[in-house]
Amino acid sequence: MQLLLCGKTQTVDRNMEEQLDKLMHQLMDREEEHEETKKETLEQLDEFNDLCLADASKPGKMDPDVMMGKLLPDVYTQQKIYILTALRKFGESLTPEDETFLTENTTATLSQFEKVTAKQGS
């Protein structure tokens, strides 16, 4: 009888170790995904900055795609808000110009969205 109990204990211990290993792998995968997303977001911001998007809110310095009619100004604004908000959530510092852009262009709906996603992330 003692032997049977010992075997069950070993099985439970092995199952717990396997579950712990699985959870640790999931955690490492999520951390890698987070870093990859952060890297991609920073690359996107660099692309925007290369196109003078940091100054797009100033008259006469609009993105070339917007000026040529390839990108609607509203779409441009939404994309820039999305990227700047994501960078802020990743803890990146924004330029004063980017902060001003967000302040001037962030809608109440987006503010609500940020609050909801912040609650889900914690």
Score class of each variant (00 low, 15 high):
Gln2Gly: 10
Cys6Val: 06
Gly7His: 00
Gly7Ile: 13
Gly7Ala: 08
Gly7Tyr: 09
Lys8Pro: 03
Thr9Val: 00
Gln10Glu: 04
Thr11Arg: 00
Val12Ile: 00
Val12Leu: 02
Asp13Ser: 02
Arg14Ala: 02
Glu18Lys: 13
Gln19Thr: 11
Leu20Gly: 15
Leu23Cys: 10
Glu31Thr: 03
Glu32Val: 08
Glu33Pro: 04
Glu33Thr: 00
Glu36Thr: 03
Lys39His: 12
Thr41Pro: 14
Leu42His: 07
Glu43Gly: 11
Glu43Asn: 14
Glu43Leu: 12
Glu43Phe: 15
Leu45Cys: 12
Leu45Phe: 14
Glu47Tyr: 13
Phe48Cys: 14
Asn49Pro: 14
Leu51Val: 05
Leu53Ser: 11
Ala54Val: 14
Ala54His: 07
Ala56Pro: 12
Ala56Gly: 08
Ser57Lys: 10
Lys58Ala: 09
Pro59Asp: 12
Gly60Ser: 01
Gly60Lys: 04
Met62Tyr: 13
Asp65Gly: 11
Asp65Thr: 11
Val66Ser: 08
Gly69Pro: 03
Lys70Cys: 09
Leu72Glu: 07
Leu72Ser: 14
Tyr76Gln: 11
Thr77Gln: 06
Thr77Val: 09
Gln78Arg: 07
Gln79Gly: 00
Lys80Met: 15
Ile81Lys: 03
Ile83Asn: 06
Thr85Gly: 05
Thr85Ile: 06
Ala86Leu: 10
Ala86Thr: 14
Leu87Ser: 01
Leu87Gln: 08
Gly91Tyr: 02
Ser93Phe: 08
Pro96Cys: 01
Asp98Glu: 08
Asp98Ile: 04
Asp98His: 06
Asp98Thr: 05
Glu99Ala: 04
Leu102Gln: 00
Glu104Met: 12
Asn105Asp: 06
Asn105Ile: 07
Thr106Ile: 06
Thr107Phe: 00
Thr109Trp: 11
Ser111Pro: 15
Gln112Pro: 15
Phe113Trp: 13
Glu114Gly: 09
Val116Pro: 05
Thr117Leu: 02
Thr117Lys: 05
Gln120Ile: 10
Gln120Leu: 05
Gly121Cys: 00
Gly121Glu: 00
Gly121Ala: 05
Ser122Leu: 02
Ser122Ile: 02
Ser122Asp: 08
